[in-house]
Design a protein around this nucleic acid. Structure first.
Lengths: 188, 188
DNA sequence: GTCTATAGGTTGATAGAC
DNA sequence: GTCTATCAACCTATAGAC
C-alpha cells in the first residue's frame, strides 16, 4: 500500500490510465473510443490525460510497447535454437505457455484493432507489426507464401482461442489449453 | 453491357457503393472510414449516399445481409445431418469448400471490425452475430465452454487463414487450402 | 497533476434546388 | 439521383489558471 501514489476516487497514474484505455480499446475499438470516453471512465477531464500522454495514439502505442520485450525475448530464443522443421510449432507453444494475462489483453487489443495495427506497422519501424520479428526469425531465407502462412497461423493460435472465448466464461487456463491443443495438432 | 445502368465516371448503383465501402471498411475499419471517404472514392457527394442508404451503419449491415443466406444455408444443412462427433469439422470444411470471393471479403470485413460486429450482435436479433446460428446448430443442448470454443475455432479457420495471408501474395486457392488443412488437423 | 475554457477540425446527417 | 449549403454534435488538442 505504501508506494501507491494515489488511492482517491479517480484513478491517476499512467498505469491506471493505460489499464482503463486498454479495456475500452478492446471493447469499443481504438477509433470508436474517444479521449473523453477514457477520461470519463477515470473520472478526470481529457486535459489531464494530455499531461501524461502526447495524444490518443501514444496511449495505444504505450500499451503495445509494454509488451514489446516479450516478443523480443521470443525472437532471441528462436534465434538461439537449431533450425528444425518443427521449430515454428515449438515456438508457438512456448509463446502460449509463457503467456500472462497482460499479454492476453494486449492480444485482445490487437485483435480488436486490425486496421489500426496495420497503420502502425506501416509507419513505424520502431514498433514493427508486433509478431513480424518473431515471424522473420522463424522463416528460412527463401520461404514460400504457404510457409509464411503456416507460421502465422501457428503463432495466431492463441489469438484464435481468444476470439473463440469471447462472450463465454472460459478461464485463462481453458483458453491457453485450447490454443495449445490447436497449435499442437495443426498442419498446413 | 446492355443492362448495366451506368458506365460514366462515378460509380452509382447500390452494388458499386457497397463494393467501395466494403474495401474501405476492411482497410480503414468502419469507425475509421467516414461517409465522406466513401463518397470521395465514388466521386460523388455524401448526400448522394443518403439517397441509397439511411446512414453509414445501414451500408455496413447491407453488406452483411448480402451474405446472410449462405450462413442460413449452412445452418440448414447442418440440421439435416445426423449428429456425429465429427460434424463440426465436416461443417467447417464444407464452409471452406463453398467459400466465394464475396464471402471472403465479408469475412475480412468482420475480422477488421470486431467491436462493430459485437455491437451489432448485441442490438439486433435480426442479424445475429454472424456465425451464431451455425454455432448453435452444431452445439448439443448441454455443451461445455470448451466444446463451444472448439466449434468456434473450427469455423474460424478460414478467418485465420485470411489473417495469415494479409500482406502476402497468397492466392484465393492457397488461402482455402491453408484453412482446410488447419480445419482437417485441428483438435482441442 | 488537474482544472476551465476554448480553438479548429471532422463527423454523420438533413433541407431543398436542380 | 445528385448537387450545394448547412447544421449540431463531436472530436483531438492546447493555453493558462489553480
Amino acid at each position: 500500500m505504501a508506494s501507491t501514489p494515489e488511492s482517491r476516487d479517480g484513478a491517476r497514474t499512467k498505469e491506471q490510465i493505460l489499464s482503463v484505455a486498454l479495456e475500452l480499446f478492446i471493447t469499443k475499438g481504438f477509433e470508436g473510443t474517444s479521449v473523453r470516453d477514457i477520461a470519463d471512465a477515470l473520472s478526470i477531464t481529457p486535459s489531464a490525460l494530455y499531461y501524461h500522454f502526447k495524444g490518443k495514439e501514444e496511449i495505444a502505442t504505450s500499451l503495445l510497447e509494454q509488451r514489446r520485450h516479450e516478443l523480443d525475448e521470443l525472437t532471441d530464443w528462436i534465434k538461439a535454437q537449431p533450425r528444425t522443421a518443427d521449430l515454428p510449432r515449438v515456438a508457438a507453444i512456448r509463446w502460449i505457455d509463457h503467456a500472462t494475462p497482460a499479454q492476453i489483453q494486449a492480444m485482445r487489443f490487437a485483435g480488436s484493432n486490425r486496421p489500426f495495427m496495420q497503420k502502425l506497422g506501416e509507419k513505424g519501424e520502431l514498433l514493427r507489426s508486433g509478431f513480424a520479428s518473431v515471424e522473420d526469425a522463424l522463416l528460412p531465407p527463401k520461404s514460400s507464401t504457404i510457409e509464411r502462412m503456416r507460421i502465422r497461423m501457428l503463432l495466431d493460435t492463441l489469438g484464435s482461442a481468444l476470439r473463440a472465448a469471447e462472450g463465454t466464461d472460459a478461464t485463462f487456463e481453458e483458453i491457453l489449453s485450447a490454443a495449445k491443443s490447436a497449435a499442437s495438432s495443426m498442419t498446413i
